[in-house]
Design a protein around this nucleic acid. Structure first.
Length: 962
RNA sequence: GCGGGAGUGGUGUAACGGCAGCCACGCCAGACUUAGGAUCUGGUGCCUUCGGGCGUGCGGGUUCGAUUCCCGCCUCCCGCACCA
């Protein structure tokens, strides 16, 4: 098996080019040959400790494991451009390095294949989305193979495989079948809840029992509704993001800040609809707190923290006639400064609170020009619902609102506070109602100005403060009643004091709220996982038994949901599956005799399949269970007490910071609570790879011209002789700056492409693409080739002799540097060190003397993770029968990392004035003596007073003159 | 507006608080060439009176010494944004 790729039929490379030069044609020949051999030999098959993939595990049983993973791609029809492989190559280099360095490495790849583009293509063409999706997967798989990545191909799958989504449905049933026990702080099986309710040891949670009657008195249907309201997956009628243009509802995360759909950019409206929700809010604290235990970038953690948006404060009740208005505030200390109240226009109390008529002397600004409060409210609510999210969130807009004609009572001082509705108060956050403190809140101050409301300061602003609201720190003022006084207190003490008082008098309590909302989990699409849910004759949801999974996606004639005019806010969703009439109705015996059930016709959102795919890699053939616990413990389990476990390196784009990464953590924690996994988190270490952008060029008319045809001439850019202007942006067809990996592999080979991508900066850094610079990587590989192979004869040139000491020092410095670069994902510094070694060998040995084998072999091993094909080829030519993929990575010998003598800089007053060479172990005194002996330094010191001498052994000497 | 990150040659970048610019692209020169958009070798931060001087966005500070640490400002990028 030691035959090499290039022995026969190398074509003459052209006039003057040596026949055995490392040309792109030779590189491609070598690459294809080694890709075939890796596949035939199963070189990258990773052994599991047990089960069907465990063959060969004894070879690696004593190795530490390393689970290295990419965010799997969505198989779009557009194929890959040069920006896509950056992360894939980063994990590939890492996994190859770790394998050589003695780890059992799992580096798999799969496909996230449900989703909108394939469905929309299917709607246009009538072709089943599975057909296009599978064709796209095959194309991307071929592209990845041609890059030489070391994925274990036995472990690949797509989320659309019934054998996969069967378990996606199974997990849904686990979530549906459990509730969050606030006492235990974790999910538990729903049967435990029912047992507690039956035994009377547990009462229905607040808001789950509308009738208010005791559990024991409820009938069967009422009980089921109470239980269903506790589930982690539950049906809920609430305002959701309805997108008529797409014909589906969307999660908050899928709606852009300006109130449009992330996909398609259609307007989104808030509409009350009954939909499946997942109770991710129950996990808000754990999702937040466990971020501290993850090796993720600070910026990414911050994005999740902001999205979860925990804030602590108080809930305070304000009496308003017969009713109580509950508000949430983070500043209960400013309660004495509340001068009015505001409800969100959609607040449920609004209509019942509105007065019958305006009191005499009502400020005309407060009525909205309406004859009665009811009319004013109705008009304002209509206006608010029509207003797009963009308008409504524009903080710069003048405040609007109307008075309800009533007042509420400030519990702390009895002050009568007029109650308004205004759209600057959001219905979904806190209680949807606020106490307005214009003295210390900018928005309240703006509203108070427009409506002529009083301002009471309760925090002393600094002298000279002439702004409106004062939001800074300062002592409390104007904050006392007969029982308590906050005056003079600081903010923290005042909050504690007033909160105690509120609790004592039954007016409120300390509380925490979150920006995070429950996850809207149903979509009115065809191309997604069907819900394993049936509805019985009471229209209540029933789980499909696990034994009957998967619920297969039925064939339909029309893949599109009914869509509507973009702005038709009152339209209602109609999922494609509802038209599969033979499928929607089913007769089953679920243990109580045959009955007729109606199937859930929504499908799961795009994110469902990516929530757990890392578990499936452990054994994608498992039909018995979600994952073998032994495999999960081995690959994902905690590595030490307190460790969260999870994938050891997860690389992907930052665009998933609050979508996929939050949802997957949530599912994983539910699975952990229910005992299906031993790890608390799915992704221990996460790195966001940078983006590759490219220059694009426009002509005088502003049209893009093909970037590949633009030439530069002394700083100016020209296309067909005419000047063009340069822009910088995404790679793609629209900017006419598309460059594909296939283009680069065709021109240079995969190894050169890999080395170039890795050389342009640390993995997490974004960078521009520059095709003309790729040749530098090609030159490097050609020089390495020339170290081992004679370009004229093709004969291997490695010598048996010993390298000189200087070469050994460079070699071992290189080994240390390359290891550092690989370990920290700074492949650019690894390549710089390899280049130095190569350049040194070229200069020291040149074309005449062969490089000693003891240096040439480590060089090949060092470059192999980056450029595996040329690595294998040279390794093979050096006489090794087996792949270097499993050969030990070189280890630096400390002996050669320390120099005998070192050059140290000599500074005078911090400026370098000379270099002296001293023994490496010279102490400070010897260093100073050597420095003083230098002519230049002696000149500088002559006649001056040396106030101080700083001598750092091995580094420098600094004379400080007085 | 709030929060985070980043500013180093023409370009991508590199430097345990210790000689700023490793490595590469580009550019310049040379070699080999009928030729060079191949390959190889050398040079390449700026200024210079050739002694040297100045240089890591700007201004301060800490230090014997700052690209690195601290403070303020400017610019760019990212995230969030009427979240009470």
């Amino acid at each position: 098996m030691s035959q090499t790729a290039s022995q026969p039929n190398v074509e003459p490379a052209g006039d003057g080019v040596p026949p055995h030069r490392y040309t792109p044609a030779l590189a491609q020949q070598i690459e294809l040959s080694w890709q075939d051999r890796w596949e035939a030999d199963g070189t990258f098959h990773t052994p599991n400790p047990t089960g069907p993939l465990s063959s060969g595990f004894e070879k690696v049983a004593d190795r530490p494991k390393a689970f290295v993973m990419d965010m799997f791609p969505y198989p779009s029809g557009a194929g890959l451009h040069v920006g896509h492989p950056l992360g894939y190559l980063g994990t590939d280099v890492t996994s190859r390095f770790l394998r050589m360095d003695g780890h059992n490495v799992l580096h798999p790849m799969g496909y996230d294949a449900f989703g909108l583009p394939a469905e929309q293509f299917a709607v246009q063409t009538g072709q089943h989305p599975r057909i296009t999706t599978e064709a796209n997967i095959a194309a991307i798989r071929a592209q990845l193979r041609r890059l030489g990545v070391d994925h274990d191909d036995r472990r690949s799958f797509a989320t659309i495989d019934p054998g996969y989504y069967r378990w996606t449905q199974w997990i849904f049933l686990q979530i549906f079948g459990s509730w969050f026990d606030p006492d235990a702080g974790k999910a538990r099986p729903i049967e435990d809840l029912i047992a507690g309710l039956d035994a009377g040891t547990r009462a229905p949670a607040a808001g789950t029992n509308p009738s208010g009657r005791p559990w024991a008195e409820l009938d069967e249907v009422e009980r089921r509704k109470v239980v269903d309201a506790h589930r982690l997956a539950y049906l809920h009628q609430a305002p959701v993001n309805w997108c008529p243009g797409l014909g589906t509802v969307l999660s908050n995360e899928e709606v852009t800040p300006d109130g449009r759909s992330e996909r398609g950019n259609f307007p989104v409206f808030r509409r009350p609809l009954t939909q499946w929700m997942m109770r991710i809010t129950a996990y808000a604290d754990r999702l937040l707190d466990d971020l501290d235990r993850l090796d993720w970038s600070d910026s990414l953690k911050l994005m999740q923290r902001n999205w979860i948006g925990r804030s602590t404060g108080a809930r305070i009740g304000f009496s308003c006639g017969e009713r109580t208005i509950e508000v949430f505030t983070t500043r209960p200390d400013t309660l004495f400064g509340a001068t009015y109240m505001v409800l969100a226009p959609e607040h449920p109390l609004v209509s019942s609170l509105a007065a019958a008529a305006w009191p005499d002397g009502t400020d005309p600004r407060w009525t909205g020009g309406a004859a009665t409060p009811a009319e004013a409210v109705e008009a304002y609510q209509r206006q608010a619902s029509r207003r797009s999210e963009l308008d409504r969130q524009d903080a710069g807009r003048e405040k609007t609102g109307v008075w309800l004609g009533v007042t509420a009572v400030n519990p702390v001082n009895g002050r009568e506070l007029p109650v308004f509705i205004a759209d600057y108060v959001l219905t979904g956050y806190g209680t949807g109602a606020i106490m307005a403190v214009p003295g210390e809140d900018t928005r309240d101050y703006e509203f108070a100005e427009v409506f002529g409301l009083p301002v009471v300061r309760t925090v002393q602003p600094p002298v000279g403060f002439d702004g409106g609201a004062y939001t800074g720190a300062g002592p409390m003022i104007n904050s006392a009643n007969e029982e308590i006084s906050l005056d003079g207190l600081d903010k923290v003490t005042a909050i504690a004091t007033i909160t105690d008082w509120l609790v004592e008098h039954g007016h409120g309590e300390a509380t925490t709220t979150y920006k995070l909302r429950d996850w809207l989990f149903s979509r009115q699409r065809y191309w997604g996982e069907p819900f394993p849910i049936l509805y019985d004759e009471n229209d209540l949801p029933v789980a499909v038994p696990a034994s009957m999974l998967p619920v297969l996606l039925p064939e339909v004639d029309d893949y599109s949901p009914k869509t509507f005019a973009d702005d038709d806010a009152t339209s209602a969703p109609e999922p494609p599956l509802s038209r599969a009439t033979e499928w929607t109705t089913v007769e089953l015996d679920l243990g109580d005799g045959p009955r007729t059930y109606r199937r859930e016709t929504n499908t799961m959102p795009n994110w469902a399949g990516s929530c757990w795919y890392y578990l499936r890699y452990l054994d994608p053939s498992d039909d018995e269970r979600l994952v073998d616990p032994e495999l999960e413990r081995y690959w994902l389990g905690p590595q030490s007490p307190g460790d969260v476990g999870g994938v050891d390196l997860y690389v992907g784009g930052v665009e998933h910071a609050v979508l996929h990464l939050l949802y997957a953590r949530f599912w994983h924690k539910v699975l952990f609570d229910l005992g299906h996994v031993s790890s608390e988190e799915p992704f221990r270490r996460l790195v966001n790879q940078g983006y590759i952008s490219a220059f694009a060029y426009t002509d005088e008319r502003g049209f893009y011209v093909p970037a590949a045809e633009v030439v530069e001439n002394s700083g100016q850019f020209f296309h067909e002789g005419k000047p063009v202007s340069r822009e910088y942006g995404k790679i793609g067809k629209s900017l006419k700056n598309m460059v594909t990996p296939d283009d680069m592999i065709g021109a240079y080979g995969a190894d050169t492409f890999r080395v170039y991508e890795m050389s342009t900066g640390p993995l997490d850094q974004s960078r521009p693409w520059e095709t003309k610079a790729v040749v530098g990587s090609q030159r490097l590989l050609a020089r390495i080739w020339r170290v081992v192979v004679d370009e004229q004869t093709g004969v291997v040139r490695a010598a048996d002799g010993e390298p000189d000491e200087e070469t050994l020092r460079v070699l071992h410095r290189t080994i240390a540097g390359v290891r550092d670069g690989f370990a920290t994902l700074r492949f650019n510094i690894a390549i710089a060190r390899i280049t130095e070694l190569t350049n040194h060998l070229t200069a020291a040995y040149g074309a005449k003397a062969p490089v000693p084998r003891t240096v040439a072999e480590p060089l090949v091993l060092l470059v192999a993770p980056l450029a595996p094909h040329i690595g294998e080829e040279l390794w093979s030519r050096l006489g090794h029968d087996s792949s270097l993929a499993w050969h030990a990575f070189p280890v630096a010998d400390e002996r050669w990392l320390v120099e005998d003598t070192v050059q140290v800089a000599v500074q005078v007053n911090g400026k370098v004035r000379a270099q002296v060479t001293v023994p490496a172990d010279a102490d400070a005194a010897a260093l100073e003596a050597a420095a003083r002996a230098d002519e230049k330094i002696a000149g500088h010191l002559d006649g001056a007073t040396v106030r101080r001498v700083v001598a750092v052994p091995g580094r420098l000497v600094n004379f400080v003159l007085g």
